[in-house]
Design a protein around this nucleic acid. Sequence first.
DNA 1: AAAATTGCTTCAAAATTTGAAGTAATTTTT
DNA 2: AAAAATTACTTCAAATTTTGAAGCAATTTT
Lengths: 190, 190
Amino acid sequence: MNQKILYPFADFGGAVAIRPGDDAVGSAAEHEDIGQESEASVVSYFELARMMERASRRFTGLLRAELTKLGVDDIGPAQAMVLLAIGDAEVSVAELLDRGHYVGSNVSYYLKQLGDGEYIDRAASQRDRRSARIRLSEKGRQLCDSLRKAAGAYERVLSHGEQDRRNLETAFQTLHRLELVWGNATRYGI
Amino acid sequence: MNQKILYPFADFGGAVAIRPGDDAVGSAAEHEDIGQESEASVVSYFELARMMERASRRFTGLLRAELTKLGVDDIGPAQAMVLLAIGDAEVSVAELLDRGHYVGSNVSYYLKQLGDGEYIDRAASQRDRRSARIRLSEKGRQLCDSLRKAAGAYERVLSHGEQDRRNLETAFQTLHRLELVWGNATRYGI
DNA sequence: AAAATTGCTTCAAAATTTGAAGTAATTTTT
DNA sequence: AAAAATTACTTCAAATTTTGAAGCAATTTT
């Protein structure tokens, strides 16, 4: 069915090996020379999309590690993301679906777990009893704080000045635009 | 166990409703006033992480839609991402693991599907027969081209000049740094 | 008061990701 | 050169996450 392949790999020219210490980035060479305002390498939105995926995974890993470190074992990174999406607001499920990136229909599912774990408080709205009002509980708030604090540590590694802050802002805006365009595109075609 | 909640939501002040047409962004107001070089809103790397997640999801949706449109039904967006990660290169599984963001151990799994679907060619390396040499097949190459071409359409919506291109580059670099820092952090702590 | 819509829940199935073995080829050690 | 260790993958099973289709109750619309 497939060519028999007993056990395949290796044999690259030679210079390809991943430099130890310099973290695994594969084809990093493509984008190596870039300081704060290089013009050389031409990146596409496509490549940016792939980079987002990679970076997101690392972030998930970070969350997972942080949760473990905090001894939290009744929720995972996905649920933590929901907590983070809620933030200080009092939201409905529908809002969460927009505000959060994640999860098609089933926020309910996560909310149940978060409810069981006492990370959130829920109550039916008076006006419209179909609608849920969801807020972080004290426990949920504390967890978010811890996670944010942990992230703060990396902030110091990453942000070294005004320029970095501007770049961060630019990145955010760019992704925001992408999100809108891609979102619309998927729904309405181009 | 949980407060009985028959069916909850609604009842916000009033101005909160999501504007139809203006795409669902929830708390977009936080970042509304930003042109190309605003300094107002303060974004954290944390928020950027959340934005990456959202945007990534849209991209996945786009891929899924595009695959459907192309009549491809034997692979999904995740597998397509693997194809895209391979690109023009001839890679080993290990390389793919670095270059791709995705998948802890099980690229094999995807590669099998891609192999079965004839999207890739694999062969054992002569030098080291454990090692696989993986390349896109013609079919795989064509699929990638189609996907890239589809993405090109959005490129025109998104890129209106030199400034946009620089922003794109900045976003890419920023995410790249994040990926490295977060990756190391997860492995070695801070 | 029916009918339609909204807001959310539930359940089941599919897809994705993780983790722990396991195997063959190559290297290193003894 | 045989044994031991390492590398480069594969495989399998389980856990997590995501999607999709119903379903139900509270509102709105007709």
